[in-house]
Design a protein around this nucleic acid. Structure first.
Lengths: 343, 343
DNA sequence: TTGTATGCGTTATCAG
DNA sequence: CTGATAACGCATACAA
């Protein structure tokens, strides 16, 4: 049974006990040079005894600075995002910041609600990975107007005037296609994500480039689409395997899709990495334990992306703090890397 | 280039423009019955126009209530925890609470630091999953003294006087052993986690019970230990396979261990689910995609555990809010379930 | 129905 | 060196 009233000591409390002014206590606690050695000691000793801890809520109210950053992600349970969050928390922790999280679940309304809620709770800055279905970016501008810097991360709006970290899939995908061609595999398909996604457009473009650089013909039929549901994934794969010139390699939009596609191939008695090859992404940390896994994976560096996004954010917060205008947009693009997942 | 000063409108601002008192504005915004219809309308209209939003930082300072809950987990990137976090965020979101996260990385000092930091930022309550190496629980008591309720989750201290959600592995493990015995598999080993972990002790006890109920002899050699590092996992498995009466089934402390153990078995040309069987946990969502997977998995319900922990926490917060003493400890124990992972 | 006064905990400014 | 005072934005008890 707990009924104690909140009994956290305050500066006033200490002042009263020591019969000095609260402002003196405050200064003593901060080792202000103008306070005498004895007073400082007396204050700090009592503070220790009473287990005094500053009320951050009061401080952040007065200083208009919360030492909280907000992180808004589509889905916390996806490995890619949770790994990024790990990186963000880690960086924030070293900077003595707390991390407020929210997940949009790819629902634009929920995204907006969370964004506003974080604005109103006066986060010092935000890291945002935009949801799949977001088309309106007004709320983000709103935050900027309130002097809350935003760093976008991985899923970023198509705009020039933003800070962000992202991963350029180009190199990874081109390397992947080159590698396939080297092995004599030229009938390369792509199962892409929903057409409206920026990421899908990008992947498709790079896919074209890869074919072109290797003087491979472009066959529209070799591009499948899925809404990223399990059924959609399976159907896209089934359709590709029905083609006359059945693909011998498949690049998948993401790892979960790859899992479904590989399963379909196996159902049709194709031997993975013999009859058919896969290229996917390195978000699932356990490819290495699977027998039938993609030949290679494109590394997207979620941890680093998160860490660096946080780093950028803190630099922006510092600038604002010191009234330095923010002149240019910090944008870090990691180059994807192709990593062999077969030994 | 951004140099605007923070220009968020306040109640004072609205009051000045409307030439009425701030308190009137405050009440009008809250649809207080004592304020006239016209005034209320005028206020709300202007508030809308100015994009007024209450300063939550000020409110939480004044009301001594932050509408934030803290969540302290060992590791954000582990699927089990990130899934739980998903559940917590989801529940918090419906209750209009924000979620502050921290990860201890199983470092007791870091755990304590985060805990205190959250206390000082006046979270309304906390959900904590205790790290592997924590032996001192004083900080947790400290929070209680400050009227910050804590709900423990999954990794809980061995104490009666706490609120928690957890999963009872007993049923799942007994069912697993029964199932093995049914199939005529009786040489059942256990690879356990570090000895100092409560969870390890529990698992071992249940393992004993399971053997006993099935009238199986207890052979000390059939219990392996690992520090949960990859090397430790592998070594534990190698040692078991060296035994004269080599085990034909293995219960693993967690999924990652299972992955390593299965890999070793395969290296030694054992056929999984024929020469040797595995029982593991259902934390990895992708067992279904793997060929050589455990025969059955014990479900621990991370999402539900998180969701319910949050629910308990909000009920505690409500009670404190209304000055109702908290009479008893809310403890929800989910019964684990055995789910077949082979079709 | 509205206004005035007060205080939450802290710190900055100014005066002593 | 120290103290008094005001202010941050809001809610509320009390006064009118």
């Amino acid at each position: 049974m707990i009924t104690n009233r909140n009994t956290q000591p305050t500066i006033k409390e200490i002042a009263k006990r020591l019969k000095i002014a609260p402002s003196t206590v405050s200064r003593a606690l901060h080792d202000h040079p103008s306070i005498s050695w004895v007073t400082t000691m007396r204050v700090q000793k009592l503070a220790q005894e009473l287990n005094y801890e500053p009320n951050l809520s009061a401080i952040s109210f007065k200083q208009r600075k919360s030492f909280n950053i907000g992180v808004l992600l589509p889905n916390l349970s996806e490995v890619f995002f949770s790994t990024a969050l790990y990186g963000i928390e880690d960086m924030a922790s070293t900077k003595k910041y707390n991390v407020l999280i929210g997940q949009s679940l790819d629902d634009p309304q929920r995204e907006e609600r969370i964004l506003l809620s974080m604005k109103n709770s006066r986060v010092d800055g935000m890291i945002v990975s935009v949801g799949k279905n977001t088309i309106n970016y007004d709320h983000f501008d709103l935050l900027q107007k309130c002097n809350i810097p935003i760093v976008f991360f991985d899923c970023i709006p198509e705009r020039k005037d933003i800070h962000f970290t992202a991963c350029n899939l180009q190199i990874g995908m081109l390397m992947a296609i080159n590698k396939l061609v080297e092995k004599g595999i030229t009938n390369i398909a792509l199962i892409n994500g929903p057409k409206q996604l920026v990421a899908s457009k990008q992947r498709q473009q790079i896919y074209f480039q890869g074919l072109k650089k290797n003087n491979l013909p472009y066959d529209e039929k070799l591009i499948g689409f899925t809404d990223l549901s399990k059924k959609g994934n399976q159907q896209a794969m089934i359709d590709l395997l029905k083609l006359e010139n059945r693909p011998t390699a498949i690049i998948t939009f993401n790892d979960y899709l790859a899992l479904d596609a590989i399963a379909i191939a196996k159902e049709q008695n194709l031997v993975i990495n013999k009859d058919i090859f896969f290229i996917s992404f390195a978000n699932l940390p356990i490819w290495e334990y699977m027998d039938d896994r993609p030949m290679a994976s494109i590394e997207q560096f979620p941890y680093k992306q998160g860490e660096q996004a946080a780093k950028i954010l803190f630099s922006l917060i510092d600038s604002l703090q010191n009234d330095q205008p923010i002149m240019d947009y910090q944008q870090i693009i990691f180059e994807s890397k192709l990593i062999a997942t077969l030994q």
